[in-house]
Computed example of a mutant assay.
Amino acid sequence: MDHSFATPSGFRQRKLPPRMRMRGSAADMTDPNQLFEDTSTNTGSPGMGYRASETQSADFTAQSLLSDPMSNLAMVYGSSLATQGKDMVDKRLYQFIPISKLKYYFAVDTMYVGKKLGLLVFPYMHENWEVRYQQDTPVAPRFDINAPDLYIPAMAFLTYILVAGLALGTQNRFSPEILGMQASSALIWLIIEVGVTLLSLYIMTVNTDLTTIDLIAFSGYKYVGMIIGVLSGLIFGRICYYLMLLWCCIAIVVFMVRSLRLKILSEAAAEGKLIQGAKNQLRMYLTITIAAVQPIVMYLLTYHLVR
């Protein structure tokens, strides 16, 4: 069927089918109340193309930088500087804090801690005070009760600070500033004690295998007796504090003398000399002095906590 019709000018114009006319009119119709153009029928978005081109540009830039020899050289040089800096920091840190050696002093277990605490409070019946060695290396503390460790001193120091805060709280004198001063005083006393001991060993030219960490460990054992004294005073009164502190002071003196005697006099014992010379007498006096300082510090850091 011919859908053309004649116009006044004489030309014939093709007439569209009804379906095509509706489809075209629907596409041309617009809602006058619509605020934005409907783009749901669009197959693509200009923004997507922009972002894709931007990603491609960034990838191209990164590839160009990586393919540049100067960029590769800069990356290698920066990595080398970072490695050298890390090695330098590790070396400097190891000079002051030997991390590998600290692992030895914390190699403890529950059985060792229990036995060592008993030795600190009752050192009178213990006979063998020598540290065991295996191929010129001292065995780990968990295998030898005579070996010094840092676990008990560190935990005892923290526990002492908590007990001091408890004692100050029962007296209505607690404050963060006072507790901080208490912790600072205990730490300063420990530093002074270890420093004076090292200086004395240097002046007397004593060749010993005692290290700074060993001295910190031995000096930190007194906090166990301080905790026992303060807790006894808080529970049973001031008289019990004096009695328990006196017991712990005597125990720590015996423990220090018997432990340090073998360390400080190890040179004379190795050479088979009798402890009769003036130099060995000074070493013995130094050992006794180090042990005698412990009760003084214990009393100064605890007497004001029990009233």
Rank of each mutant, 00 (worst) to 15 (best):
L201E: 09
P141C: 08
A147G: 01
T159W: 09
D136I: 02
D109I: 05
N207P: 01
L166P: 00
I188N: 04
I161V: 15
S175H: 07
L119N: 09
T212L: 09
K91Q: 13
R142W: 12
L162T: 12
W129E: 06
I216A: 08
L93D: 10
A186E: 03
M111H: 13
A167P: 02
A186V: 03
I145N: 09
N172A: 14
G180F: 11
K103G: 11
T208A: 07
F157G: 01
N172R: 14
M125F: 15
M111K: 13
V163P: 03
Y124I: 07
S185P: 01
A147L: 03
Q95S: 12
T212Q: 08
I161L: 13
L150R: 04
F143T: 00
N146I: 06
A147N: 01
L102T: 10
I161M: 12
S185W: 07
Y160T: 09
A183K: 05
L119S: 11
Y202A: 15
L150W: 06
L168R: 11
L150G: 05
L187M: 14
S100Q: 13
A107H: 10
L117M: 15
Y160W: 12
K103S: 13
D109Y: 06
F143Y: 14
Y105I: 04
L102R: 07
G114C: 09
G195N: 04
Y151N: 03
P176K: 07
Y104S: 08
L120G: 00
E130Y: 09
Y151F: 15
E130D: 14
D144F: 10
Q135Y: 12
V196N: 01
Q182C: 05
L215G: 02
V108W: 03
V194R: 06
A183W: 03
K116Y: 03
D109Q: 07
Y124T: 06
L93N: 12
P138E: 02
S185T: 14
G169K: 14
T197F: 10
T170L: 15
S184R: 10
Y151E: 00
L199D: 02
K115W: 06
D136S: 14
F143R: 12
F157A: 08
I99C: 00
Y160Q: 13
A147W: 02
F106D: 04
G118T: 07
Q182A: 09
R132Y: 08
A107Y: 05
F122N: 12
K115D: 14
F122H: 11
W189C: 09
V108C: 12
L162A: 15
T212H: 03
V139M: 08
Q135P: 00
T170G: 04
L93C: 06
Y124V: 07
R173Y: 00
I152N: 02
R173T: 05
A167I: 03
Y105E: 05
P138I: 02
L158I: 15
L120E: 01
A164P: 01
I191A: 15
N128F: 08
L158R: 05
V194H: 07
V194G: 06
T205L: 10
S184H: 05
I97Y: 12
G180T: 09
L187S: 13
I97E: 03
L215H: 02
G169N: 14
I178F: 07
I99T: 12
V196R: 00
G195H: 00
L190T: 14
T208F: 05
K116D: 02
A154V: 15
D144K: 09
F174V: 10
L215A: 02
R132H: 13
I216T: 03
A154Q: 03
L150F: 07
A186K: 02
Y151P: 00
Y124N: 04
D144N: 11
K91Y: 14
